[in-house]
Each structure stands twice: as structure tokens, then as C-alpha cells.
Design a protein around this nucleic acid. Sequence first.
DNA 1: TTAGGAGTTCGAGTCGGCTCTAGGTCAAAC
DNA 2: GTTTGACCTAGAGCCGACTCGAACTCCTAA
Lengths: 131, 131
Amino acid sequence: MLTISQVAERTGLSVHALRFYEQEGILAHPVERDGGGRRVYTEEHVDWLTMCVLLRASGMPLPDIRRYTELVRQGPGTEDERLELMRAHQERVTGQIDELTRCLDLITFKVGVYEDRLADSPERVCGVGRM
Amino acid sequence: MLTISQVAERTGLSVHALRFYEQEGILAHPVERDGGGRRVYTEEHVDWLTMCVLLRASGMPLPDIRRYTELVRQGPGTEDERLELMRAHQERVTGQIDELTRCLDLITFKVGVYEDRLADSPERVCGVGRM
DNA sequence: TTAGGAGTTCGAGTCGGCTCTAGGTCAAAC
DNA sequence: GTTTGACCTAGAGCCGACTCGAACTCCTAA
């Protein structure tokens, strides 16, 4: 039994984002309301949202997360599509990691270049200049 | 001596993006114009832009790339700030890779879960259901 | 009983990074 | 000589994922 701000704190999402996610259908189980119409969350919601945060952090777009959420809501029998979704995302993420690793190589090379240049001539720099 | 569309093809940027980048000050050397006012690029531009594409692909924001470009334009004496910029970006990228790797662990776990579930009961799926 | 704080809805605004459109110029091919 | 296609500028539009604001309702505690 958690308030929206407690869930915000636990998940790292803002209260605005939490309402937005709910409206976007990014919750596997509906959020109850108390007498005054306020949202009442459970630990299950926190768990689900925590996973959503991870999916988002790895670049899964909201429409995909919504689709996945729908499949989970529909219950058993949708495992094949869930697997498909996750596999596709898995590939995207490995691809991203690969690309970032390639970029990192260049960046690390650049860092090395500047370190050397500055080590050689700490006062008046006289390197190649370009790039 | 290259036209904008040739540069677009070589760098993977659109012609729109190339004009936009120029306007944003993302070119270490100015682009010349022919008699008709058309941009004339050189291989050096392609090299520079290729690096910019890599920096963008690794999430460096345009303002940072612009700053880096300015420093290179200013020539020798700015190496310390260039190094600082690249080091900061290097850290961001390694951080990103770490985070993505953590996310990938969850995703791979999920994929495993669904593979097992589907392998156990290819016809009528009777798994736990939640998530 | 009233002030404060946390919650509500709905809709508008923001931001980065392009992308696209309109309206025009120019050189070459037909 | 006109049509085609690539180029130009300036500025508007788009997209995703929030973020923020206004105007309101509650509950609680002084």
C-alpha cells in the first residue's frame, strides 16, 4: 500500500511520469484508488515499474513496453510473442553495446593522443594541430 | 571536391543534416562554395564528419561537439580542454555500456524464462503467468 | 476553521535533433 | 528553350518521452 510519491522514490520515476505511464497502459495490473480517488500502489507495481525502467534505460520504446504489458495482462498463451519481443530487444541492446564499444575505441584513442601531446610539451604545445 | 549528396552518402548523414551541422558550427574547417553558391566538400570534411557521427552515435550532445569543434578550430593550446571533453565523454560511454550490460542481463534472463516455458509446454502453456 | 501539503485531471509546453516544405537558382541534357 | 535534377535559404513541423502549470479536491493538524 504505497502512495504515488513513495513509488516515485522507489522506482526513480517522477510522479508525473507514473501517471503518464498509467495513462499509456504501462501497468500490468490496474492501480486501485482510495476513498479520495488517490492512487494506491503495491509492491507488485513497484516490481513491474522497476522492470519497465530497465527496459526504458536500454532503449525500448514505450509502444513496445505497452505491447509487452498487454501480453502479460492477457495471461498465459502469449509467451511466444513475449519471447519474440524480448529477443528483438536483446538484439538491439547487444547491437548498441557493440556500437558503443566501437565508439569507445575511437574516444579512448583520442584521449591517448591528447595525453601524449600534453605530456610531450606541457608548456607550449606544438602538436600536429588538426583534430 | 565533393558535393553535399556525395558527403551525405559517405557519412550516412542526410543532406539536411549536413546543412544543419554546418549552421550549428559542427565543422572544423569552413565549407567552400562554387560559382553557383553550392557547397564544395573535401575528404577532410568527410573525415571530420565521420568522427562527429561516431561521437553522436555514442550520445555526445551537439553542443559538446560544437565546443570540441571550436577548440580544434582555435588550434594548438586548447588540448587540455579537448582532453577534458573527451575524458568526460569516455566516462559517459563506459557508464552507458555498463548500464546496458546490466539491462541485457535482465533481458537475457527473461528470454531464458520464456524459452523454458515454451519448451516445457509447447501446446497449452501453464506457467506462472505473471510477468 | 483554516492553512498546508499531497493528491487529482487535463492540456499545454519543452527539448534535442533532425526532417520537411516552399519557393527559388543554376547547369546540363534533350 | 525548356525541362530535369541537384542544389540553395529560411523557417516550420515532428517525434518521443516526459515535464509543467492551472485549477481543483482532500485530509490532517494547529
